[in-house]
Every structure is written in structure tokens, then in C-alpha cells.
Amino acid sequence: MRILIIEDDLEAAAAMRHGLTEAGYECTHAPDGEAGLAEAGKGKFDVMIVDRMMPKKNGVEVVETLRREGDQTPVLFLSALGEINDRVTGLRAGADDYLVKPYAFAELIARVDALSRRRETGAVATTLKVGELEMNLINRTVHRQGKEIDLQPREFQLLEFMMRHAGQSVTRTMLLEKVWEYHFDPQTNVIDVHISRLRSKIDKGFDRAMLQTVRGAGYRLDP
């Protein structure tokens, strides 16, 4: 998996590169918008991480240029803390996901993972299968070891998201954003409670827990 980091803060870029390399990614770094576009033109990348504030061409311009030129590589947009407009601007420009700096590394890796595998699961499927779990997207049923599991609509959506990202860590913020479609900062463990409800439904009475808690990151659905 190849990642292009377009970021003018060299120290931040180095840290990002270090973390992503540890996670198994191959990274290329460009220190400004123009260099970033040049790199993007040269090679094939699975994900691009684009900072909002940069010299020469800013993040929004970079994403807009990429999209105009038909480059559909998933983009994770980064912006500084407290810039309340940036998320909308970034997504409107064509970015696929958004992260506020400073971020937890687990959050960055989880989002890059999600973006890099998005294209693999892009095919239209009517059923999802992860280990013993089977989900029918047409009649909205879930079975584990052939036994039907009764889920509320939101629990179904939550499980669907976990199944589509099976084996990957997903963070609480990602779940709130992708399943509930809200971008705020819950002060309490609202997501944890939903996960523990889902867990009691899909894991209770089975010999092995599929829905794992990843310390410091979030959750992972193991096959």
C-alpha cells in the first residue's frame, strides 16, 4: 500500500511517515502543494494525506486539482484544531475523509486503513460474510453459525460497517461519523454503550468473541 503525504510541517510529516511505515505502508512525502501534485502525477498511490494549510498550493486547491484531472485516489484531509469550516470545505473540494490535528495515531491509521480498502469492497454485494457471521443486505438479516440474530436498525448499520472493515481497527469517532453521520465530540462513552449492546447480541452464547476492543484505538471485528 502506498501513501502520499502532502504536508509542509516536516516534523509532523516525519512522525506520520514513521507511524504509517510501522503499520506497513510505503510512504512518499511532498513538502508543499505543488510538489504534492507533481508526486501524485508520477506514481500510483492508494491514499493521499493532504494538509489544509500549505505554501504554494493549499490543501483545498490540491484536492480540487486532483479531482479535476480525474484522479480519484482517496484523500484524507488534515486541518488545524478549531477551524470549524475546514471539514465542509475539505469534503466539498473532493476529499473523502477528514481529520483534525493534533490527532491520535490510532485514528490516523484507522482512517487510512478504511480509505485504502474502500475500493476493494466497492463491488455491489448482497451479502457480507466475516467468519461465522453472515449478513444479508437485501432482507436485512444476520446469522451466526446459522442462528439468526435480531438487530435494531442502527445495530444492523453498525455491524454492517464493522463487517465491511473486518480486521481493521475502527475508532469511536469514525463510528459516530460513518454510522450516525454526526461530527461532534461526545464527552461520554455513547458509542461504547452501543458496541457493548451489539457485542452482547453477536457474541453472547458463542465460544469466541468476534467484536474486539482495541486499546487506545477503538474496536475491531475479527473473522
Binding site: 454526526y182 461532534f184 465530540d185 461520554t188
Partner: peptide, 18 residues
Amino acid sequence: NREFIAQALANILDNAIK
């Protein structure tokens, strides 16, 4: 702004539960 209003409601609910 839907996100801000959601955040506001979340804060109120957080407090109530807390």
C-alpha cells in the same frame, strides 16, 4: 449548523446523564 446543534444537544444530554 447541524453539527453544532447536535453537539449542543449532546452536551445537554451528557450533563443530564452525568
